[in-house]
Amino acid sequence: MKKTVCIIVAFLALVSCSQKVVPADLAKINGYWEVEKVVFDSIDDKEYRMNEVYDYFKIDNNKGIRKKVMPQLNGTFLVNDVEEKVAVRYTADGIFLDYATAYMKWSEEIITLTDTELVLLNKDNTEYYYKRATAINLMGDGKTTK
Rank of each mutant, 00 (worst) to 15 (best):
M1K: 04
K2M: 04
K2S: 08
T4F: 07
T4Q: 05
C6K: 14
C6D: 14
I7N: 02
I7D: 02
I8Q: 09
I8K: 02
I8A: 14
V9M: 13
A10H: 00
V15W: 12
S18M: 07
Q19H: 13
Q19P: 01
K20I: 04
V21D: 06
V21E: 09
V22C: 04
V22N: 07
P23T: 03
A24D: 14
A24S: 12
D25H: 06
D25C: 04
L26E: 03
L26V: 03
A27G: 04
A27C: 05
G31E: 08
E34Q: 11
E34M: 08
E34L: 06
V35L: 10
V35N: 05
E36G: 01
K37P: 00
K37I: 05
F40G: 03
D41L: 00
S42D: 13
I43S: 11
K46C: 10
K46H: 11
E47S: 08
Y48S: 01
Y48H: 07
M50L: 14
M50H: 11
N51I: 03
E52D: 15
V53R: 07
V53F: 07
F57N: 02
K58L: 15
K58A: 14
I59V: 15
I59W: 04
N61P: 01
N62Y: 03
N62D: 05
K63F: 11
G64P: 01
R66E: 02
K67I: 09
K67H: 03
K68G: 12
V69M: 10
Q72A: 06
Q72R: 09
L73R: 12
L73C: 09
L73Y: 12
L73K: 15
G75I: 03
T76N: 09
F77Q: 00
F77M: 13
L78H: 06
N80E: 14
V82G: 06
V82N: 12
E83K: 08
V86Y: 11
V86E: 12
A87P: 00
A87E: 15
V88S: 01
V88H: 01
V88F: 01
R89S: 06
T91C: 12
T91I: 11
A92I: 04
I95R: 03
I95P: 14
I95Q: 10
F96E: 02
L97N: 03
A100N: 10
T101G: 05
Y103G: 07
M104R: 08
K105M: 08
K105D: 07
W106V: 00
E108R: 14
E109I: 05
E109M: 13
I110Y: 10
L113P: 02
T114D: 06
T114W: 02
L118D: 02
L118W: 08
L118F: 08
L118C: 10
V119E: 15
V119A: 12
L120D: 03
L120R: 00
L121W: 01
N122V: 00
N122E: 00
N125Q: 09
T126F: 02
T126Y: 02
E127F: 13
E127C: 09
Y128E: 15
Y129L: 15
Y130E: 06
Y130P: 00
K131S: 10
A135G: 15
A135R: 15
I136W: 04
N137V: 07
L138K: 13
M139I: 05
K143L: 15
K146W: 08
